[in-house]
Design a protein around this nucleic acid. Sequence first.
DNA 1: CTAGGGTGTTACCGGTCTGTAACTTTTAGA
DNA 2: TCTAAAAGTTACAGACCGGTAACACCCTAG
Lengths: 193, 193
Amino acid sequence: MSDGVAERSRPRDRILETAQDMFHKHGIKGVGVDAITEAAGTNKMTLYRHFESKDELVVECLRATAAKASRIWDEFEARHPGDKLAQLHAWVQKASELLSADSRGCDMANAAVELTETDHPARRVIKELKEAQREKLVALCRDAGIGQAELLADTLSLLLEGARVSMQSVGAEGPSAQFVRMAESLIASFRAR
Amino acid sequence: MSDGVAERSRPRDRILETAQDMFHKHGIKGVGVDAITEAAGTNKMTLYRHFESKDELVVECLRATAAKASRIWDEFEARHPGDKLAQLHAWVQKASELLSADSRGCDMANAAVELTETDHPARRVIKELKEAQREKLVALCRDAGIGQAELLADTLSLLLEGARVSMQSVGAEGPSAQFVRMAESLIASFRAR
DNA sequence: CTAGGGTGTTACCGGTCTGTAACTTTTAGA
DNA sequence: TCTAAAAGTTACAGACCGGTAACACCCTAG
């Protein structure tokens, strides 16, 4: 019988991938290390040989998720080289696809909700990575020739963040269903100024 | 020495109030029933005489929070009787005040993030209460004479939801700082249509 | 073939969690 | 004042948690 996870990669990679998936689906405090290692087809000792604690594993998972998100941005540039406005529309499109494909929202935002301890190692990583994403979106808006780039970027950010959390409360038929329409008309109105 | 909680109310009320506060600050899975009862100046047995389980206590807390929110809406009507547009602006103002006063966001949204079990009793209550709030905001927008009332209400909802979760990730200096400006210009643009 | 690092296995530690039993004390109402 | 309900106290069950120790195994590089 084959594992749910990639057939025969290194234990560390399997643990990381499995943990990402399980944290995403069930939350961080909702998953124990035993469950992760079992699903990854390995054991607890091996986990602790590669990660010094569960908290450290969480941090590593968040970095991996951010890296995945970063690759999506490269895709925008590859598909619409130089055309920043087209890339902005691609961002909206991609965001909407992610909303449809999955209803558990953003791992970093969810982690921020769950990990309330102010000195949790994940908190600074979350802030760091979220700020980097914000910078990217601001730059994209600015390079697309939009005047109030920061304001548009922040508004789009809040809309997406809101849509992702709203889905978890009221489902896909709630306010988040209108995300694309909201985002597009917002972009249009900023371009008209 | 006086307790941190209301001097001498009934144990059930003290438990409910304390639980609301602690769940809000530290999350649901981050607080045990022992900690709640101790902070409420009582004991675990008394808690389980009034609530059949922790899950049931969570549900009751969410209902209490929603009732509190409902009282704020009554305040809008009392302060601007009949003037629905003024009430809508009051809603924006109040939302912004809540954002400044507290950075732990919406209890119901946070609970939805934390409680991933699809059959958790809190989930249907969250959906129920969030849908009721949505109805209220839609009605307010419609009665304020706005054409696409549903779309405005949903957009404002997502903005606020996003602002509340964004604060938990990147703090008050992030995108959520522009909430009032976003909401007001949104209302203005919908009124102009 | 052999040495050694990566991995698997089992058992365990101390702590915390929700929830309950049995009993005593306090409180409030007639 | 007497009584009955509400609340406090202590102890415990059973499960799960993160994390570690000790040891056996396998697989590959030399």
